[in-house]
């Protein structure tokens, strides 16, 4: 447990600095949110209707951005060897990496999501739900993205592979979250979508570390 804490702190420091860290994701997020309304036409009422959805979708894209190299650098510079010979199994190492990724980029993005939605003209009352969805969804994105990054280890054009692996896995949480947000703003039942999103997130956090550990072992062999 102590070793896990040591690793988590290091991963946080690395995630904070890696490729611009949270700033890169936040800037990318801002770009999408600013450009999308320009592309979607001028009617403010139409924009307000899709605002929570856009804020939510852009979040998934921004999360993808910094995930590609999650394991790759450690694999290339020999850190993964060292991590494999430590007191914690590689599965725990994967959890630490994804958790750090979420804390360093997912959580800041979740806090930025309501600001973005407000700019797009979304209703104020949807904000608490948006933050909740963004936090849970961000956690799922971090773990699923980590899974993609681990599976792509050692392959050429790993980045492309990550996107292809991760895309179908990102679809359900995006749908569930958008369903909850849409339902809530339209005054329809919305708890179902939220529950599914939380369940999907829990499943991803519980299962993907097993796959990441196996994928890392395989890459080292």
């Amino acid at each position: 447990m102590k070793a896990f804490g040591v690793l988590l702190r290091r991963e946080l420091a690395l995630a904070w600095g890696r490729g611009g860290g949270p700033l890169l994701a936040l800037t990318f997020y801002a770009c999408v949110v600013v450009l999308l309304p320009m592309a979607s036409g001028r009617a403010p009422e139409r924009l307000a209707a899709i605002a929570p959805g856009i804020a939510w979708l852009a979040l998934a894209l921004a999360a993808l951005l910094s995930l590609e190299r999650l394991f790759e650098r450690d694999y290339e510079d020999g850190t993964l060897d060292l991590l494999a010979l430590g007191p914690a199994p590689l599965e725990a190492v994967a959890v630490a990496k994804c958790l750090a990724q979420w804390l360093a980029t997912g959580a800041p993005l979740a806090l930025a999501a309501p600001v973005a939605a407000l700019m797009l003209g979304a209703d104020l009352k949807v904000m608490p739900l948006l933050v909740l969805c963004a936090l849970a969804g961000g956690l799922a994105f971090a773990f699923l993205g980590g899974l993609g990054a681990a599976l792509a280890l050692g392959g050429k054009r790993g980045g492309l592979l990550v996107a292809v692996i991760v895309l179908p896995l990102f679809a359900p949480p995006v749908i569930f979250g958008a369903g909850a947000l849409d339902g809530f703003s339209a005054g329809l039942p919305w708890t179902g979508g939220l529950m599914l999103l939380l369940a999907y997130c829990a499943g991803a956090v519980a299962l993907s570390p097993l796959a990441m550990g196996a994928a890392c072992r395989n890459a080292l062999d």
């Binding site: 420091a13 690395l14 510079d77 020999g78 850190t79 060897d81």
Partner: peptide
């Protein structure tokens, strides 16, 4: 301990 050519030291730290 395993110490190979790749030492696992991060250049930015």
């Amino acid at each position: 301990h395993l110490l190979g050519h790749q030492d696992g030291l991060k250049s930015s730290r």
